[in-house]
Design a protein around this nucleic acid. Structure first.
Lengths: 290, 290
DNA sequence: TCGGCCATGAAACATTTGTTGCACGCATTG
DNA sequence: CAATGCGTGCAACAAATGTTTCATGGCCGA
């Protein structure tokens, strides 16, 4: 197995967890979930709340390499100490080379993306959401890396409008769907430089069919934004690194879904509840509480 | 005399400080300056470090209205508890109405997500990227809304490592792939509350097979984080709205891909160029300038 | 089926914890 | 000067803490 990144006692615990006896697993999970209480309250106290034997805590600590519960708790306490300023509070710009160059790359990227998000136009999103709300049917398009955003949008919208939403090209060649666009329907196209021919074709087809065209793109001059009723802009190139950033597009997509849901009112809420109930019945999710 | 707004035990202490005997003032200042140690270490321990008598701590507590040191410490502990007063949970609940309610919803959401991004651990990402770099093969898993993140990661990694990356379950039932995990390979599992059974199964299979397990999750106590060699945390619930936020997960995925690419050096760069050349030859993209 | 092993809970253990009683020092007051 | 009150350190106390031991019960291999 690869080196187990033993930065914090919590990760050591997590790594060792599966190989532990059942009772120690329970206690270990409890500690991981309540690590603040673990550092402040007493062992017996925790044991009572976790419904376990006090001895289990000592055994857990020893099982993952500490001399005892006191030792483990001391490690947890140190890991939680607030004075250690989070390594990325903004002034991490200093070192750009050396062994930490990769870290700097990531922090720069994250900061740039965080700065870009609030620049998204909330008004435009709300208007686009209204258009989606009014649409009889919603088509979604996104190729290559934008495919992921398209699929998330598809997923979330289908949670409360199952029959009226679909991704272009899921049931055959794209061209088949292109002929199905109708006035009163909405077509969402997601893309950024370099633009794919396919996405442009979809946009043009939507325009010619008289459908409402919503473009999520990185520029007003993007080819699929031509003739679009709504254009939602994000910054793809704002972040350093080699791949264009998609967080902006994703944030737009999620906001769009959230507002559209909100516009749907009680009807949408009921559909969502139905869907959730169905998932619960199929035991899709792991039951809460550990 | 009106009671002086006893918001926190720390402020009670500060207010009462001047009217206390000299020795208790010293101890009181020490507690105020080291309140984290006050909640975690023992009274005698603190006394030794402060150069004071242990009894002084008990007397201090009683002097400012507590039944004893234990009582004071309990108050300090509660005041420090991290879960409460998250910057967003408080005011996000105040649902605004009126014509701009939807706009407010979007801006709140975007701001919250922007604030969440820099909290991602860059170090953890770099370490996980190293693991990916060393892996002979990379499996990616994500169900439901996390599917989109999984597919983006798959897409970007395949740009420069085409034959070694794939999503679990693309070529048949998931179970087929679960048996294919091998030591030296890496398995990435993406998920957040509520966790799907399927993703947990994949994580467990990866662990049992001895593969390097990388979890992208919203909590250290997520079931698929158990036994993971690397855990990358994002905040799914931090944003208001109805769907959990995925921008954090997406940012992690993109950073992961970027760093992994960077580690790949010239070899990776060459693969990426090859891929781009092939796409250009297939005329996938719209030529620049329109 | 037996024997050994391991996980688990209860109880006994030594240690540490917070507290309190006591004596001393110092300042103030009659 | 003597008496009084308060602040302070020391040491002894009971309670609580973490640890260890032991007995029990279930599991797997021989």
């Amino acid at each position: 197995m690869a080196e187990p990144a033993k930065s914090s006692p919590l990760s050591e615990l997590r790594i060792a967890l599966p190989s532990l006896p059942m009772r120690l697993q329970e206690v270990g999970r409890f500690v991981a979930a309540n690590d603040y209480d673990a550092t402040t309250r007493s062992m017996r106290d925790l044991a009572a709340e976790a419904g376990a034997d006090p001895a289990a805590f000592t055994r857990l600590a020893k099982a993952i390499g500490y001399s005892g519960w006191d030792d483990l708790r001391a490690a947890l306490t140190e890991a939680r100490r607030p004075s250690q300023t989070s390594p990325f509070s903004g002034r991490a710009k200093s070192r750009r080379h050396g062994p930490h160059a990769d870290v700097a790359l990531v922090t720069d990227k994250l900061e740039a993306e965080a700065a870009g998000l609030p620049r998204i136009s909330a008004h435009a999103i709300v208007e686009a959401a209204r258009a989606l709300h009014d649409a009889k049917r919603i088509w979604i398009t996104g190729y290559r890396s934008c495919r992921s955003v398209a699929e998330l949008l598809n997923y979330e919208l289908r949670l409360f409008r199952p029959e009226q939403v679909q991704i272009v090209g899921t049931s055959g060649p794209d061209d088949l769907d292109l002929g199905a666009f109708r006035p009163g329907e909405a077509v969402i196209v997601i893309g950024f430089l370099p633009y794919t021919h396919a996405s442009v074709r979809v946009a043009q087809a939507a325009y010619r069919a008289g459908a409402t065209l919503i473009a999520i793109a990185d520029s007003l001059s993007a080819p699929m934004a031509e003739g679009a009723d709504h254009v939602l802009l994000f910054e793809a190139a704002s972040s350093p690194g080699f791949f264009p950033s998609l967080t902006g597009a994703l944030a737009i997509a999620q906001s769009l879904a959230a507002v559209t849901f909100s516009l749907g009112g009680t009807a949408a809420k009921k559909r969502l509840q139905d869907t959730e109930a169905r998932l619960a019945a199929a035991a899709t999710y792991v039951s809460e509480k550990g």
